[in-house]
């Protein structure tokens, strides 16, 4: 990759509730950002391919077997927080975003 990444500030880390998500606008895209605990953060698209609504940030975070996931609040399909793959239907997935905490600020890599 020749183009260097642009990190976009989302919000201070302490605004995120452990075990919950928020939605951020990053370059016109809706990104669901989840804080598991401490500085463990994941970001995937906010788009739920099953309902067509932008809602994944409002789902409940948890685990299935060893994988971290979020369950869509509409029809409850689960999405892997690391890969974006739907755990209930491997033919569907959502895109993932790079995310980090820098200086107490949560940042997402702009695509």
């Amino acid at each position: 990759m020749l183009v260097s990444k642009v990190w976009v500030d989302i919000c201070p880390l302490d605004k995120l509730i452990p075990g919950r998500g928020v939605c951020a606008l990053v370059g016109g895209l809706q990104v669901a950002v989840f804080r598991i605990a401490g500085e463990e953060i994941y970001a995937i698209s906010n788009f739920d391919p099953f309902s067509g609504a932008f809602v994944l940030s409002r789902g409940i975070v948890g685990s299935r077997a060893e994988r971290l996931k979020v369950a869509s609040p509409i029809y409850k399909q689960s999405f892997d927080l690391v890969t974006g793959v739907c755990l209930d239907d491997a033919t569907r997935s959502v895109r993932t975003f790079e995310v980090r905490v820098a200086g107490g600020m949560v940042q997402v890599a702009s695509p």
Binding site: G19, I36, G59, I60, V61, G62, S63, R64, L68, K69, A71, K76, S78
Partner: peptide
């Protein structure tokens, strides 16, 4: 065990 889920958390 684990992190919980949309069933046990609520």
């Amino acid at each position: 065990t684990g992190e919980g889920c949309e069933i046990c958390k609520p």
